[in-house]
Design a protein around this nucleic acid. Structure first.
Lengths: 239, 239
DNA sequence: CCATCGTTTCGGCCACGGACGAAACGATCC
DNA sequence: GGATCGTTTCGTCCGTGGCCGAAACGATGG
């Protein structure tokens, strides 16, 4: 016997409204494009979704109103980005549900490039992200906590060498170094302020570069050399 | 510059279609009612969502077709349940996105009962689930792996005493003991075959009981006594 | 066999909302 | 100031989809 006469739960309509915001092809395309944590302009998002600017504008307003996107006006451009990590996580989780179960067709596994290395919101994910986390834990630069990573005493030096200022990161309001479950690898990688800072340094140092029009990353030759030298971390390069 | 002319990605429409299936008030109510892993009949689900049976039937067919629900016909009843853990996880993640950000209204925190103890798909969650996982790890009955829990040599005896046959569980096709991130506690609890078996034993032993019409659980007096005796685990009882 | 019950199929109504054209708005640049 | 560009607002069209009444279907039970 089920709650025989529970009136419609407000929690359920919250669920439904969030889902229905994502559940439109145009909005899904835009959200998907924002999933790497960058902020894009309304016009760019309109092109991503193949719709007219005024249509995109309407969608974006609804997404902001629903708390899924954050808006930052800069000059005559308006930059939209994913509002917070919860939203990113929900979208990732949704894309993990198999459209059609059973022995139907090929499981439609994600392209090799995106499994090898990508950004998740604003930090590194995929085999690169997971491998990095493992390597740092293995070298006792990080310790794996319950829901977060901790920088060891010895590890602080390593981050300083990398050019990441831990003091600054700790002052931010953001969680320092949370664990984030990777949807292709099903293992944890480093999120939070530390994860974002490390990813930023990797870009600055030219160790990784974006594959255009995708969240996938390419590990550069320099990156391969340095990651192997620093951490004995070898990154598989997809064909 | 964004992927200037990437044609509409099939991955995006998969995301959109999954989300739009959840993004209807009636379907959300039904899915929410099924989140504890039970199988309910079409009629029950119609009452849950306050719609006519024929309307529910249409919704349910679409959910099955979309791979979100599994269907089991038994006599003249048809039982629907959540298709797999990925779907349950996506729904949980979606309900974690705050409908309205910022200092708008009350953060609308989940009711105390549901934070204290509930089922997640088919295993224990909330403070009870997280506390249980912590206690088992603390007593070295379980070891916390990267994406799963492992039963220690000493721990096997404890599960035998509880009445959980690990041999049988290991033969199932299902993952043995995965970690599942709890959306209220933001910490891991025990999912997979082991999580389900432990939850089932807790019900059988009368340690927990369902609060009717909800996923929330009540820890019985017997359960409190035994959990404290076995694991020094004290469960907070909400007012 | 007929009655009943749970469920699904069919048909039709109606509304929500996504699409774009046109136009207004606001910032930037000359 | 005037031209341009990115963006939003307004108005309108139109298709998708949720809803229910009626009826068919299939299993159960007398």
């Amino acid at each position: 016997m089920i709650g025989t006469d529970t009136s419609p739960d407000t929690r359920d309509i919250a669920l439904a409204s969030a889902a229905s915001l994502i559940g439109d092809a145009s909005r899904a395309a835009m959200l998907s494009a924002l999933l790497d944590g960058r902020a894009l302009t309304a016009g760019e998002l309109a092109r991503v979704a193949w719709i007219a600017p005024q249509t995109a504008s309407g969608h974006l307003a609804r997404l902001v109103d629903g708390g899924l996107l954050a808006l930052e006006a800069r000059g005559r451009h308006r930059y939209y980005r994913i509002a917070n990590a919860d939203v990113a996580h929900a979208i990732e989780a949704l894309s993990a549900v198999t459209p059609r179960p059973g022995p139907r067709l090929t499981p439609n596994s994600p392209p090799a490039a995106i499994r090898a290395a990508r950004t998740c919101y604003d930090h590194l994910a995929g085999q690169l992200g997971v491998g990095l986390a493992d390597a740092l834990v293995g070298r006792q630069i990080l310790a794996r906590g319950d829901r977060e990573f901790v920088v060891t005493a010895a590890g602080a030096g390593w981050f300083a060498e990398l050019g990441v200022d831990l003091q600054v990161l700790r002052q931010s309001k953001r969680k320092f170094a949370t664990t984030c479950l990777d949807w292709t690898e099903r293992r944890h990688h480093i999120a939070g302020a530390l994860g974002a800072a490390v990813a930023a340094r990797f870009f600055e140092l030219g160790w990784v570069a974006r594959l255009e029009g995708s969240r996938a990353l390419r590990v550069t030759v320099a990156g391969r050399v340095e990651l192997d030298r620093e951490l004995r971390l070898s990154v598989h390069v997809p064909a």
